[in-house]
Amino acid sequence: MKQTTAIKIATGVAAAAIGGLFLYSRATRPPVINAKVPQPAKPVDLTRYTGLWYELARHENRFQKNMDAVTAEYALEPGGKVGIVNSGLRAGEDERDIARGQAIVADTETGAKLKVSFFGPLYTGDYWVLDHGDDYDWSIVGEPGGRYLWLLSRDPHPAADQLQTLFRRIEALGYDRWALRITQHEPGPE
């Protein structure tokens, strides 16, 4: 009888902890900056999408708070999965924060919608490539809830006119460009 009571208490504590984590994650999500997230503009060839990307701007979120020099690297893995390594430097720190994850294609017709997990199979998030350059030199990434947005580029220091063109494209997709935080990278060569 004592063992049954202990199991019930342990189960209750575990359920409360999971519930608390769920409520915390819901309470700390960024606000919606696009109530009408569009469908991805074009298909994505994951072979061309793989490689190193530099984050140019993002809608600030708790897991990247005060982070600059942010990169994302994607690699095709066996079984059609995509390996992910995100990293960046937090203000005042010298060592990069690194997060490793995996993605699977959720929309095999276009390849533009993926399910991403950094915490194992219990939590997955949507990753939509809303638009990208024909040469895969830039990418705008979001998710269907309109809370997250990233502007990625192969070049950490694109020309000012190209950057303005990308911000206009973000606005055309229905996002408030002024809600984005510009990501700082080490200065490029003069």
Rank of each mutant, 00 (worst) to 15 (best):
D155H: 08
Y49T: 02
K113S: 12
P121F: 12
A16Y: 02
V141S: 06
G19L: 07
P40S: 07
N66E: 10
P187K: 14
T4M: 06
G20C: 08
D161G: 00
E186S: 13
A103Y: 02
A106S: 14
G80L: 00
A10G: 10
D137G: 13
V82S: 07
G145H: 05
P158A: 08
D155F: 09
L21E: 09
L152P: 08
G12S: 11
L130Y: 06
A172C: 01
Y49D: 02
W178D: 08
G146F: 05
P158Q: 07
T108C: 00
D155Q: 13
A106M: 00
W53G: 01
M1I: 00
R90H: 04
R29Y: 01
S25D: 11
L149T: 15
L151G: 05
G101F: 07
D126K: 00
L89M: 12
D161L: 08
Q184M: 05
A35G: 12
A14S: 10
P158W: 15
V129R: 06
L152K: 07
K81Y: 00
E77V: 09
L23H: 03
L130V: 05
A57P: 05
A179C: 08
G142P: 11
T50W: 00
W178L: 09
R154N: 06
Q162V: 10
G125Y: 01
V32P: 05
G120H: 07
K8E: 00
Y54C: 02
T47Q: 12
S153W: 15
K65D: 01
I33M: 07
Q102L: 06
A10S: 12
P40H: 08
L52S: 01
D45M: 03
H157W: 11
I182T: 06
K2R: 11
A99P: 04
A57N: 04
S87Q: 11
Q162H: 11
A17R: 03
P158K: 11
Y123K: 03
W138I: 03
W128Y: 09
R168N: 13
F119K: 01
R90M: 01
R169S: 05
